[in-house]
Design a protein around this nucleic acid. Structure first.
Lengths: 206, 206
DNA sequence: CAATGTGAAGCCCTTCACAGCG
DNA sequence: CGCTGTGAAGGGCTTCACATTG
């Protein structure tokens, strides 16, 4: 029926694999090769792609260029996205300079922080604003994605401002329970949740 | 049969919820309240906990203190964990100063980077070493968890060093396919994978 | 009666296995 | 013959619904 979200995520993995292969000069690639390149299984590669159409040629494989273009289009990476980073701390700074973002066509168009010492300064081409400017700046800079890197207790408040400004997509790093309208999509990254799997695992074997 | 990994992850969520509730002075909490606090459903809270034992009292709920202690023990958070951060860039810096880590009992015992300008300096109480020191320092500082925040093409090389030093748990931020022995547990955080779900979603509705 | 603990059902994703096609 | 595309089977997590218990 619907496309599994995780299949969408994996397309970015395949894109990465395709790039590596195209640098090697290959014109076509089989699901077996792409699987090896990305650590997946060939069946999964084909199944993931099949949710979006039929891109391969039986007996041959996929055209590296065509598949690259196709996935790029599916993921909406054939355009530049204006991103706002909310929270100018260490995490916000790391995200602003993250190379993977620029490569994928993301542009940090504004930064928000409530620290008076930071407001008015610039990170690269992006200026730092007070969060109360979120509605105005979001519209003016045509920001489409908000990245939340503020402390947990401040997250809902800034998110509400983005929502009011019409934002429909949020990447949230704050370990907080958020409430959002149904038409707004969010992804949450919670470092604690990742780490406790490791500590639990380590505790089992000692 | 086995415990779902995702249930283990969610225990940290419940821990967070319990902390909030205990600050409010409550002695007991029902699965309904804990669910509300964490954005889950009561059934799921109970099911998650049931994988590890029977901690509640019918008609009453769970003792906040007891459940807090129990989950803390299950997750292995009743001890301090020595962590190494590999990669002294912006991301590494953000992770080193991440408050959530300290709260959970993680201690950054060493940092590794191959930039000569950084080697020898200190981040808080942790010194920055060259990656070739990984085997020695890992053992000497009794490091148990490695956090990988280096570029993708450097990831496997430093991970191999940690493996040789006996590390069994890795939190990886490098967008790379890794090969690890089966007895080493890793969790991967890939920011691109999170973001493409958002851009895909945004592309659908315009 | 309030709230837990849990088999069973349902759902979603993964894996399998093979028909289909160049 | 090689490799894709895909129904069907399998597996794991979520949700349901209710028996159980203080």
């Amino acid at each position: 029926m619907g496309v599994p979200e995780i299949s969408i995520s994996r397309l970015s993995l395949y894109l990465r694999g395709l790039k590596a292969v195209s640098e090697g000069g290959n014109q076509t690639i089989s699901s077996y090769q792409l699987a090896k390149e990305t650590g997946m299984k060939p069946d999964k590669v084909r199944k993931d792609l099949s949710y979006f159409g039929q891109f391969g040629r039986r007996g041959i494989g996929y055209s590296v260029n065509e598949l690259t273009d196709t996935i790029t289009r599916i993921l909406g990476l054939n355009k530049q996205w204006n991103v706002a980073i909310c929270g100018a701390g260490n995490l916000g700074s790391a995200l602003a300079t993250y190379k993977g973002f620029a490569k994928m066509g993301f542009k940090t168009a504004a930064v928000f922080d409530n620290d008076p010492k930071k407001i008015g300064k610039s990170w690269g081409k992006a200026k730092i604003f007070h969060p109360k400017q979120i509605p105005r700046v979001t519209k003016q800079k045509k920001i489409e994605i908000a990245i939340i890197a503020v402390p947990a207790d401040a997250a809902q408040s800034v998110i509400d401002k983005f929502i009011r400004a019409g934002i429909k997509a949020i990447l949230n790093f704050a370990p907080a329970k958020l409430s959002l309208p149904k038409d707004v999509k969010s992804r949450n990254v919670d470092l604690s949740m990742e780490l406790v799997n490791l500590t639990h695992f380590l505790s089992l074997t000692e």
